[in-house]
């Protein structure tokens, strides 16, 4: 594993540890492993870390740890990875109300793929989607693993506002908009669960390296979970 590691500076306050140059669960698992292990061994001078598809950006304070010393810590930690116990990845359930006003493009996605609406929902909810990384906007998950049978091109004309919580499809990707934002994804449903709540103790619900599953719900459940806020999600965690 170690010989695939590439370390490079990004400016004078960050180190990039990359494991390769492809989107794969195997590489992303290494990124997650290194980040969790570094958190566990508590390296003085690491300010924070940004995990991405196949690399980990380590933001450090050069007044507390030098670049070479940090590179050494990264190599040592990676070398000892087999001996460091890491938590199993979680699967977080995302209750989703499909179609209707909350999923205006569900019919189009079905038509485009020659499926019924129920088949689209069934396919979308049967997958487990790895959270490769978060980015773009606060809490936006880059998810992998969508079934090609429901792949649909983006809207030709993006919408100026998509409500936070909207679940969409763009090409062969699925995703959730954490906050209101413009966008061109085909919107098939909405979750009442706040992925992003800046005033909460846990402002962002999802974490890179974990997975999510969509669970279909009805309007009554949507309304109840909206009222309950995050409490509805906790029970959904596996």
């Amino acid at each position: 594993m170690e010989n695939e590691l590439r370390l490079a500076p990004s400016g004078d306050l960050a180190l990039v540890a990359s494991f390769g140059n492809e989107i794969s669960e195997a590489l992303n698992t290494k990124v997650r492993g290194l980040m969790l292990a570094l958190e566990k061994v508590k390296v003085d001078g690491i300010v924070e870390m940004t995990p991405t598809y196949c690399s980990l950006m380590i933001h450090y304070d050069p007044l507390r740890i030098g670049y070479e010393a940090l590179c050494g810590k990264v190599r040592d930690t990676l070398g000892a990875l087999d001996d460091i116990e890491l938590p199993e990845p979680m699967v977080i359930e995302i209750p989703t109300l499909y179609g209707g006003d909350y999923g205006p493009d569900l019919d189009y996605v079905a038509k485009h793929n020659g499926l019924t609406v129920d088949e689209v929902i069934k396919i979308h909810t049967s997958g487990t989607y790895r959270i490769y990384m978060l980015g773009f906007t606060p809490g936006f998950p880059y998810l992998g693993g969508m079934d090609e049978r429901i792949a649909t091109p983006r809207l030709e004309t993006p919408r100026t506002k998509i409500a936070g919580g909207s679940v969409g499809i763009a090409g062969a990707q699925t995703g959730i908009y954490p906050i209101d934002s413009p966008g061109g994804w085909q919107i098939i449903g909405r979750t009442p669960v706040a992925l992003y709540d800046p005033l909460s103790d846990e402002p962002i619900l999802l974490k890179a390296g974990e997975s999510i599953r969509f669970v279909p719900i009805d309007q009554a459940t949507f309304d109840r979970l909206s009222r309950e806020g995050r409490s509805g999600t906790t029970e959904g965690r596996v």
């Binding site: 990004s10 400016g11 990039v16 140059n21 690399s55 950006m57 990384m133 980015g135």
Partner: peptide, 11 residues
């Protein structure tokens, strides 16, 4: 183009 990675201040 690369596969997205982290961006530092001043990159």
């Amino acid at each position: 183009d690369i596969i997205s990675d982290g961006i530092a201040f001043g990159a």
